[in-house]
Design a protein around this nucleic acid. Sequence first.
DNA 1: GGCTTATCTTTCATTTTTGAAAGTCCAAAT
DNA 2: ATTTGGACTTTCAAAAATGAAAGATAAGCC
Lengths: 291, 291
Amino acid sequence: MKDKPKLKTAPKLDDYMLFLAVVDGGGLVGAEQTTGTPSPTLSRRMTALERTLGKRLFERGARGYTLTSDGRALAAEVEHLRAAAQHLAAFNTTQTRSLVRITAGHWTTQYIARHFGEVWSQDASLVPSVPWVPELVSSDAMVDIARREADIGIRNRRPDQTWLAGRRTARIAYAEFARSPDVLGYITLPESLATTPSKRWLRQNKPDEIISTVSDPRAEADLAIGGIARVILPIFAGRAMPELVQVSPEIDALTHEEWLVSHHDARHDPPIRAALDAIGTLLSASTRFGP
Amino acid sequence: MKDKPKLKTAPKLDDYMLFLAVVDGGGLVGAEQTTGTPSPTLSRRMTALERTLGKRLFERGARGYTLTSDGRALAAEVEHLRAAAQHLAAFNTTQTRSLVRITAGHWTTQYIARHFGEVWSQDASLVPSVPWVPELVSSDAMVDIARREADIGIRNRRPDQTWLAGRRTARIAYAEFARSPDVLGYITLPESLATTPSKRWLRQNKPDEIISTVSDPRAEADLAIGGIARVILPIFAGRAMPELVQVSPEIDALTHEEWLVSHHDARHDPPIRAALDAIGTLLSASTRFGP
DNA sequence: GGCTTATCTTTCATTTTTGAAAGTCCAAAT
DNA sequence: ATTTGGACTTTCAAAAATGAAAGATAAGCC
């Protein structure tokens, strides 16, 4: 940053914790063992702490650091900070697992939820080294990964913003499903909710054959199972419902790719890395698309 | 550092304090005002805190940040840390001035002590913007600036270690002083203490004329004032004692430069910067060497 | 007295963090 | 419906921090 004269009036709180580690350990080597911070870094941090406070906290010798009287006085005062930091650490361990928010369309979310046990387990021996839990959010809206509305999005095209990273997982095909081939007419969502390409396609291509609407994708499928009309579904979702049969060939106009999308930075975050791997495995599984 | 996978289990304590500032301020802009930390930095630090804890602490909106339930829970817990940090800040303000340890030979130390008021004042309107206090240590030993035995050293030659920074301040000349020109013989320090060039010179050149020794540089001058013998002094020191007169020409063999020396890193430290400027002004003053 | 060991400091290449400027998005105002 | 303003995120160049390796120093041991 710009070279502007700045008197540091407040040391880093972490430097106080490192200070205590040096005190407890009798020197940099002892503190290195307890904190994992290398001695050269500790040396600089202790020097910076002394400089910022304007106090000589240690006498430095061949046998390690020993406290000055200023150092002993400070150590007594920093115990409050140690207690507070330990309190926070204890609080944080009450929830050790990272929540990873994953958004996808309804049927993809359902598929993930039903098959998630195949790639994740709460059993201690199977839990991945990075503990995480999925938070599945069913949404067709383009959620804002930049503003952290989701950690991972499953989308129907390659991400085009440069801060997003994406991996193609599958090719998704659509077809008509019904209770039997002789069921005619279509059920779909109201026009205001018909935001997906498949809903728009139906309204554009067969508007006179829509005989009913319902506001919920789950209910849409239930009504098709009830024999009232046909429904257009991703084929992997339709095949997952034994009461329905495919009653048309694939609808080529609706076929699209499926992309697993995350923020460029976040994908290095271990819980998100682990989630991307697990979800990617699920979405790419050959069993998802047929026997 | 090496690219090794590392799950950060403990956030920076300062990030918790920034978190509280964001909570108090209702967003990044409010926190920027109270902490001075720019919004882009705060944005990243809050994202890093969330990632490290595996919790979503904020909902992000066009009107700033609002806390999630996890965020509210954490904010309550972090109050302990806020209290501890405030306790420390209060403790630190009990000693706001930086102690700058300056080592020099006896006579230089005395000169600085006597004239220090010319470049430094406790008066509020004259105190420099960087509060510091000198800790003068009279020592002829080569103190270890690397191991922080002193912040500033006044030496008789250019520093040769690369981690030291130096500024030449004066040319120091020596001569014999006595109560009157007819006083003969020399007083000096015992051989074991005669570590300075001037003492060694005397022992090498006029060993048979040493008629007495004393262990203290101050007493050495006092005895000369008492008329017992001559003493070899830096001319600026001799002239500062009206009871003594210079009784020899300058002793060319003893003339040397004077250097103001500090650790390379430390000289950017404002208290040390201020001390170097003040001491440099004193040592270079023309009044130090003559009428 | 010389050698070994322990501990701290410095070098140097690499990584991380920072902050000004610019970009993005949404709510409020017109 | 459009424009404006506010708040957050990203870009990019610069600054700061880091840690392995090497250097420096002193105490302990033989």
